[in-house]
Design a protein around this nucleic acid. Sequence first.
RNA 1: GGUCUCGUGGCCGAGUGGCUAGGCAGAGGUCUGCAAAACCUUCUACGGCGGUUCGAAUCCGCCCGAGACCUCCA
Length: 404
Amino acid sequence: MRHAKSIERLQFPDKDKEKFEPINPPFVGMYVCGPTVYSDVHLGNVRTFLSFDIIYRYLRHLGYKVRYVRNITDVGHLESDADEGEDKISKKAKLENLEPMEIVQRYANDFHRVMSMFNILDPDIEPSAIGHIQEQIQMIETLMAKGLAYEVNGSVYFDVAKYNQTEKYGVLSGRVLEELQTGSRQLDGQEEKRNSVDFALWKNAGTAHIMRWKSPWGMGFPGWHLECSVMSSKYLGETFDIHGGGMDLKFPHHECEIAQSVGAHGKQPVKYWLHTNMLTVNGQKMSKSLGNSFLPHQLVTGSHPLLSEPYSPMTVRFFMLQSHYSSTLDFSNDALKAAAKGYKKIINGLVLAKKLQFAHDESISIDAGAMAQIDGIIDNCYRAINDDFNTAKTIAQLFNLLKK
RNA sequence: GGUCUCGUGGCCGAGUGGCUAGGCAGAGGUCUGCAAAACCUUCUACGGCGGUUCGAAUCCGCCCGAGACCUCCA
């Protein structure tokens, strides 16, 4: 690949850009926080996985041997941080009178269907939290042995204040522990914790709970943040290259992950953190709780009230790639309409270019100037995608190429 | 309330100090029996007020507006 140069820049926690250098080239370890499978994935979720699909594909294109791990969260994600906070899957199972594993299976299947609908490649490993209960218990034991976790009534919490004595909690998201403590709202049912910022590693669960496992602290289930620390280190090592996820996971989820991993292994788990920004609707984040979700099938059928017509998954893919992954992107009918036309244009060009390849004729002299121009634009394409995977810039270059 | 981000032409959306972003829409044109498609040309910018600089959409300050996180969320 003549034009394939190494990625020059990548976004960092401190917002500076640096050259991307894998820890053990040509291998790259990449972990992305996957979905909690308790309901349908919406287009906001899709945007994140699409962004990392591009990154995964591009790294492979450059010749890196990528191991891409994307988890499925099937236990431990609480409705709230309060003691009576219920597991999302468990709640849904009760609601629909189904086995929790039926819920997990149903929405995991749905997730996979949606991923393939958008032509998003499968990860190399897709581990689930339930499949790693033993490893999670082991990590808790390690943290307890180091004095970074404590048990209360069969639940185990991470001691953030203790951790903060030797490490800094909150660096990734720019938080300061003292401010978090004074600024945090008063939540009910937190008497068990020594500190409001402490988070659960293991939650005690009585017989009323349908999802519970045996542990040294009694029957219960693992906390949400723990699975990612456990599974990423198991499959990618204690320090790996890229960790991704939605911006809304930066705090507290990723912050807690760092604390757990540093606490247990004594080193930073991740070299490059990448966070994708939110898909918005009328300027507001698309989220399940706000009720402004667009579901993939609503898009394809055009059945959402805000859509004037159906749009293909590839149109949406194109639409999303016209912005940078770290910017918010507003979802609207007009924007999709424009994307549909633009996408068609670029595909027409691609089809045409493929036809041209079979028309080589030795008798026709090649215009050197035009060739140089085309080479220049192709170079620009690589420069654009190398610049923190800037797909918007890259697409603009592709349109320039089209004109030649 | 605290922390942070953003504010680009009719719409979407790149761009971090000087060099055309791009797409969609609009206008004009080429082609065509008409229409469509395709292609060519082209108009409309940088929230406001100051400051730094030879020069700012780009850096700094203040103001206005929007959003995110702080509590489950990709």
